[in-house]
């Protein structure tokens, strides 16, 4: 079975509950400059001459053919065969940021520990039948855990 955390932009208001739930789940130390693995944001845009505001929540897409996996010089990133999430063991992470250079979605970051950190799909929660923290908290159902 393979899962994706799918984002439905029409339901999102960029409230950031997903980001905070991620911080709580993963003990993110924002005072050290660390960021949650999911970021909510809004942005102005125009569509057919009309002014609009777009609301988004972005994180690792857990790409099927994840370029970060191949790019990691230390082999830290890999797919969990049970969930399909792009997970990692950063024991040998050197903080080189090659994963950031490989990712077209801006997902991997280097935490204050000097090691890469990104969304791992709340892999163990999902294996235990629970939703990822961001999905569980979302007040508007904009994030859904779905089978890929």
């Amino acid at each position: 079975m393979s899962y994706k955390i799918n984002f439905y932009a029409d339901l999102c208001v960029a409230c950031g509950a997903c980001s905070v739930a991620c911080m709580d789940q993963n003990d993110i130390d924002t005072e050290k400059g660390d960021q949650p693995y999911r970021r909510a944001y809004q942005t102005d845009y125009t569509d057919s001459g009309e002014k609009h505001i777009g609301y988004f929540s972005a994180s690792c897409r857990h790409c099927d053919d994840a370029p970060c996996i191949a790019a990691c010089p230390s082999g830290c990133l890999f797919k969990d065969p049970e969930t399909g999430f792009t997970v990692y063991d950063t024991t040998n992470c050197i903080g080189c940021r090659s994963c950031s250079m490989a990712c077209p979605h801006g997902a991997p970051a280097v935490a204050s520990t000097g090691k890469m950190a990104k969304c791992y799909g709340c892999n163990e929660r999902v294996k235990a039948g629970l939703k990822p923290a961001c999905v569980a908290v979302c007040p508007f159902g904009a994030l859904k855990l779905e089978e890929a």
Binding site: G16, A17, V20, D24, A136
Partner: peptide, 9 residues
């Protein structure tokens, strides 16, 4: 069963 941004903190 959900929470808002503040409640999540």
């Amino acid at each position: 069963g959900v929470l808002c941004t503040k409640g999540a903190a």
